[in-house]
């Protein structure tokens, strides 16, 4: 069974780029870490870091 003859001929159109993204767990890992790191963490830390000192 473990031979390489697994190209099922049910359909052989080109795989859509979306499917290629979804089938690639490490690309997804990158996206899944980068998105919240940028929008939540980095932006959030900037927000807190730029709070001014009280004017009195």
């Amino acid at each position: 069974m473990a031979d390489d003859n697994n190209t099922d001929e049910r359909d052989d159109e080109k795989i859509s780029p979306w499917q290629q993204i979804i089938d690639n767990p490490f690309l997804l890992l990158f996206i899944g870490v980068a998105m919240p790191t940028v929008f939540y963490t980095l932006w959030g830390v900037m927000e807190v870091a730029t709070i001014p000192i009280a004017p009195y």
């Binding site: 979804i22 998105m35 919240p36 939540y40 927000e47 807190v48």
Partner: peptide, 24 residues
Amino acid sequence: AAYLLYIFFLQLASAHHLMTDPGI
């Protein structure tokens, strides 16, 4: 595709714990 949306956006929602925090 719905799961893909989770990967992109789900984790941002941590912010809802900080809605009433000062200065943000």
